[in-house]
Nucleic acid binder design. Structure first.
Lengths: 128, 128
DNA sequence: TTGACAATACTACCGTGGTAGTATTAACTC
DNA sequence: GAGTTAATACTACCACGGTAGTATTGTCAA
């Protein structure tokens, strides 16, 4: 179960996982209208995707009546870390500073955000 | 040319791009042995991949004799930023602090690295 | 000039993300 | 009980990353 490739989730899969992470549990219908995209996806598309994701170990479900109630089977933390590390290693040779530098020069970052970053780094320096 | 989907490059493609970025130009043979993977890829695999990548606008080539000399057609910066931003938006709701926090708790980060991060943030605070 | 080599071109195949239609079935309503 | 509804199951298809074999052809050496 731990051996799921976590750094190659597609866009739709990620959006679905986000719904599951946010809600804890969700039926196909819940997920379907939670992702209120412009050209609305077909209901069956979401259902199929969820089935595939369960087969891949990303989600799981229980049954309520004859409705499937899905939940995430991998923690958001794990996926986030995996994908972030993948990008970090593959594109920035593992240098967090380089990555942050690129991100800082291409986005508006609020003062709060910067302060929080400072705090994190200071904290990390204290505990090696 | 600007409209290449840059946030969905596969692993092999990224490794190849890395070679092109590092060297500026490279023949298929150059790329082939630059990626010295454990079960060595077939030469034709690399050639095919490069052709596909050129079709996708990721690389380009000139001819020297009858040898193709490839080069990257997109800047490392752009790809790096794109992939990083994608992960940032999709998994950390755009919060750089959140992403960095996750990365800090799961990797060894050198003191130099932390100092550099601090410097970056301080600099950014000075120039809004 | 013939053969060997080295290059690209072409073709094929698998896995999987993404998309959705059709089929089946369970359940509710009248 | 018959019909409608709402759920999943099944199937199919495209795009594309990844992998590689076979075919073709240009070039150089003997």
């Amino acid at each position: 179960m731990a051996n799921v490739r976590l750094h190659r989730l597609g866009d739709l899969q990620l959006r679905i996982m986000q719904v599951l992470w946010d809600r804890g549990e969700a039926s196909v219908a819940d997920v379907h209208d939670a992702l209120g995209a412009r050209p609305k996806l077909a209901y069956t598309t979401v259902a199929t995707m969820l089935r595939k994701m369960e087969a891949r170990g990303l989600a799981a479900h229980r049954t309520e009546g004859r409705t499937f109630i899905y939940r995430a089977a991998v923690a958001e933390e794990r996926v986030g870390r995996n994908m972030a590390e993948h990008v970090l290693d593959r594109l920035f040779q593992g240098s967090l500073a380089t990555m942050v530098s690129h991100l800082l020069t291409a986005r508006e970052v609020s003062g709060d955000e910067l302060a929080e970053l400072e705090r994190l780094i200071a904290e990390r320096k204290r505990t090696p």
